[in-house]
Amino acid sequence: MVEFQNVGLRYGTGAETLSDISFTLFPGSFYFLTGTSGAGKTSLLKLLYLAQRPSRGVIKLFGEDAVTMPRRRLPGFRRRIGVVFQDFRLVPHLTAFDNIALPLRVAGVPEGDLAGPVKEMLDWIGLTERATARPATLSGGEQQRVAIARAVIGRPEILVADEPTGNVDPDLAVRLLKLFSALNKLGTTVVVATHDIHLIGKIGGAQMMQLDRGRLSDPTGALRYPPKPLVLGA
């Protein structure tokens, strides 16, 4: 589903932020990406959700080379990836409803078919009453839930979440993780970046990827020896 081979990323002319990153993500798995602040988690995820091109190496996404892919094909790939940004990135002048509906509108879903799924999402994140609220009037946790709803409404094949539990109290953090886990059980590949080691034990069967100053280690060996190698080489 996703394959990184010797990927390096350098911002400007400085040292490499990411070096020799190699891993494979398998469909339907749940991954945690851990590492201290500044280790390069966000940078790695940016490569994954096509916001950044690597300086070197190969990235394969859904079986295609994402590095040399022409620009005009990128939007189609981005629509297959749901992203919860570290800073949410909600559109400030749009209501919670419209923010959640955005991916569907971008994908060209007719207006008449929007309301059902969006209301379902609002219900799922418990914000039905705040449907017409703008992000500025929502609490941090509420904004985070809207950001998550927006990331998953398009039923993406991969869900990427960058520190999705950073702004919420521990109870809500666990609830959000359960939510991701539920999506994962429905077949979505999930990648969650977090610096909070305690969260990782809450999801059974999750793989862990650890970043240390731009280098990836594989403490559980899951990246090299995947537990479910069913789609290998497909």
């Binding site: 959700y49 916001a51 005009r72 939007p75 189609g76 790939f77 981005r78 629509r79 992203v83 990135r89 909600l90 559109v91 400030p92 002048h93 955005l102 991916p103 971008v106 994908a107 927006r150």
Partner: peptide, 16 residues
């Protein structure tokens, strides 16, 4: 620019 970046990352095309 923020809105543009979001729509861009959600898979909006240049033309849209």
């Amino acid at each position: 620019s923020a809105t543009i970046a979001i729509v861009h990352l959600l898979g909006g095309t240049d033309l849209q």
